[in-house]
Design a protein around this nucleic acid. Structure first.
Lengths: 348, 348
DNA sequence: TTGTAAGCGTTATCAA
DNA sequence: TTGATAACGCTTACAA
């Protein structure tokens, strides 16, 4: 137990050279079948554990990638991570989880750490603020140094040439608006997380497009922005929902906001869907058990994880093809949180 | 851009020796203040990125730990990971996520990978099957090779000397049983995930202890085991809940099972709590929004993550004190899924 | 098929 | 305070 077993120890113990041991253990050619077997045996007897730092130093390969998430508390990432792990494991790739918490500085630090660590690739859901400023330059720097990058969920303004897997966010929200309109709603509110973030901007844009197409004109004050803090969000909802001139429906844009809307409605004594209709976004299995079951726009999150990881491994494997941009479609899960306005008009 | 900048490049560019550069950049002593500044400047001009593989090879430190989770889809781990990340980040430690999916073989493979990678510590929620067989030997091997290990959530039979943070699972369930008994329930069912796993066995044991103390004797068939697959679980619940001689209350032992019980009750037309009371385990914020809001045994998961990470970093920092075993207490969140049996008796 | 030797980028020891 | 040198454990030409 004096220190760890190295390739040299194995070589010494068999009276052969370290290079032969290396070749045998890494399945390289040029080692006799019999010798190879003996080397393997001694290696396991000696409890040999390869030192990947040494290996990486020589080969510049770590079989490790970085997974940058914007908010580790979001169930979205659990699902996504599950998809990622499922494709990484069989390929013997490990991943380091980096939580930026929508903090640009933290994101930058993590990118640097990942570069130092020598990851072969980065999967990231990058942050961008209202002014459009982001860490694009750092991702580019990583790519220049040979680290492959794939964006998932979010894109960055003015940052091209990076593979991505995103949702068709515009279409997703448009379908939500159309769905509500078909049921008679024209007074629709929209709850948005932080402005600037790609998905949020796209969803907002989809909302405006759909309204334009339908010729409806929801009040600008019904677009609720910066719904990050719970009590602040609740306040905003309260002021909009208690006005006599209030919206008859709300579209929310993440699972957390779905819950916030339901809570706000309950607190205000507004029955969903009788008094207020709700189209949620993202889907927890629990949405079905809520009273009422929430009609929701569901993203194929696990697939997104699998696709992103597959794309990245492809690049690591040497794929030098054109930039790939995969756009997934959302589906609308119809449950019971949307009513036709006939009933609501009466109550208004 | 011909390859990456190394310490040698910086040295050459300043006409000094690499060792001086190394000392300057790693804040070591023995470098003049002025020189140090110039070195820093050139380093950043040259876009220098330290190579941690090389560094690790020399120092045997990677500032990386492994986080082994038993099922990445369980929201428990999101919360836990959040706690872990919060303490790791300021210390500049990274973590590799390993998902075993309750597969002993996969767990073993991940432990090996982590050892090869040179992690300085492992945080693990280890698996153990019905027969008590587990990967304890591998964790011990890791420890022998200098990797610190902290178990969280689960312990391993016959594997001592490893720090841990767990819940007082027995007490948690006992309180659940007492709570139900106070409301008149004696016919209590228990839903268990996989037998063998530490937490499950402890919860089962707590259940039996509480019943013994109270002198109540729930039917053995009401202890539902191996509730892993959804449809199988549903079948098991169905057969127990449709019997004329059925339990009046159910205790579930994870968030997933909470949902399963609610779904089963709905499918069978059983009203919670009027026809069936439910005490859940683990807590999703959504439990409050379910109809009815689920009374639940809540674990301090984020704290568990913070404590586990702190414990591990302490060991890495050189703490050689006695084995630490921290046991956290659960709290019972009273909501509306438990009724007093008075009403139920009528309906039976 | 096997061995020799150089080198990956860093740090640590020792000497200046 | 600084520099020369060896070494960490591995892979890979190249030579045998």
């Amino acid at each position: 137990m004096a220190g760890k077993t190295t390739i040299k120890d194995i070589a010494k113990s068999l009276g052969i050279s370290p290079s032969t041991v290396s070749r045998a253990l890494s399945n390289g050619p040029g080692v006799g079948g019999d010798l190879r077997k003996r080397i393997r045996k001694v290696a396991s007897q000696l409890n040999y554990i390869p030192n990947s730092s040494a290996k990486s130093l020589r080969t510049r390969k770590t079989k490790t990638i970085g997974l940058i998430v914007s908010d580790i508390r979001n169930p979205f990432f659990l699902e996504f991570m599950g998809g990622v792990e499922a494709v990484l494991f069989p390929r013997e790739f490990k991943f380091i989880v980096c939580n930026t918490g929508e903090d640009s500085k933290k994101e930058e630090i993590y990118i640097r750490w990942l570069m130092e660590h020598g990851v072969e690739g980065i999967l990231s859901s990058p942050y961008q603020d209202r002014e459009g400023s982001n860490n694009g330059a750092f991702y580019k720097k990583a790519m220049k140094s040979g680290i492959h990058v794939v964006f998932y969920d979010r894109l960055l303004e003015g940052v091209g040439g990076i593979d991505s897997v995103t949702l068709d966010n515009e279409q997703a929200i448009m379908n939500g608006v159309f769905y509500l309109r078909e049921r008679g709603h024209e007074r629709i509110a929209l709850c948005l997380h932080k402005r600037g973030i790609y998905t949020i901007e796209e969803r907002y844009s989809g909302f405006k497009k759909a309204c334009a197409i339908l010729g409806i004109h929801p009040d600008d004050r019904w677009v609720l922005e910066d719904m990050t803090d719970y009590s602040v969000s609740l306040d905003k909802l309260r002021s909009v929902l208690t006005a006599s001139d209030r919206p008859t429906a709300v579209i929310s844009t993440n699972q957390y906001l779905n819950e916030t809307v339901v809570r706000a409605a309950r607190e205000l004594g507004l029955d969903i869907p009788a008094d207020l209709s709700l189209v949620g976004f993202d889907d927890s299995s629990l949405n079905e058990l809520i009273d009422p079951p929430v009609t929701t726009i569901r993203q194929p999150v696990v697939d997104m994880g699998k696709i992103a990881a597959t794309l990245l491994l492809g690049r690591i494997d040497g794929d030098r093809g054109e930039q790939t941009r995969i756009v997934l479609k959302a589906e609308l899960l119809e449950r019971n949180s949307v009513a036709s306005t006939a009933k609501i008009v009466k109550r208004l």
